[in-house]
């Protein structure tokens, strides 16, 4: 855990996260527009409230769509050893996790519409007590890893 893991996730992850952020930003933009409309038709809606909502919306959009995805991608790293999986993530709070292969209970890959658009998939590794994700791997890489991990995890489990 001294060195960080050395494999990065797919670069397209940034695009996928950005797209997700844009989609979420649409909701806040709709709220902002609704606030502006209300401001013109209803007397008691104060102007500063509308400005505040608009400000928050823009800041949220810029931060979630243009700043966070890059930072997040830069931090995300993983490494698969024969006997364990090593993951690093987190922008402010950096978390490094070790999951021994013999503790792995099952491995899943997941793909939503946005990830599918970029040909990406998320790998989910479950132990008896915890779940760990490696987001946004290339599709074939994810399924390869899934098979590889489940192969490595097939080592005789003593118990639980």
């Amino acid at each position: 855990m001294r060195e960080q893991p050395n494999v990065r996730i797919a670069k397209d992850a940034i695009k996928a996260w950005q797209l997700t952020a844009h989609l979420f930003a649409i909701i806040s933009f709709i709220i902002t527009i609704a606030a502006i409309v209300l401001y013109f038709y209803v007397d008691f809606v104060p102007g500063w409230l509308v400005l505040a909502i608009a400000g928050v919306t823009i800041v949220e959009w810029v931060v979630t769509a243009f700043i966070i995805p890059k930072l997040r991608w830069r931090r995300w790293r993983y490494q698969i050893y024969d006997q364990e999986i090593y993951i690093q993530h987190g922008i402010l709070i950096v978390t490094r996790t070790l999951v021994p292969m013999i503790r792995v209970q099952h491995v899943d890959t997941q793909q939503g519409p946005i990830l599918k658009k970029y040909g990406l998939a998320t790998l989910e590794i479950s132990t008896a007590a915890t779940t760990h994700q490696i987001p946004a791997l290339l599709e074939e890489e994810a399924s390869e890893l899934r098979d590889q991990i489940s192969e490595l995890a097939r080592v005789e489990q003593d118990d639980v």
């Binding site: 402010l92 996790t97 999951v99 008896a128």
Partner: peptide, 16 residues
């Protein structure tokens, strides 16, 4: 040791 399912190490910027 073999009962620990996963080990995580966390650091915030101040910790670092």
């Amino acid at each position: 040791q073999h009962r620990v399912q996963a080990l995580a190490r966390k650091q915030n910027p101040l910790h670092r």
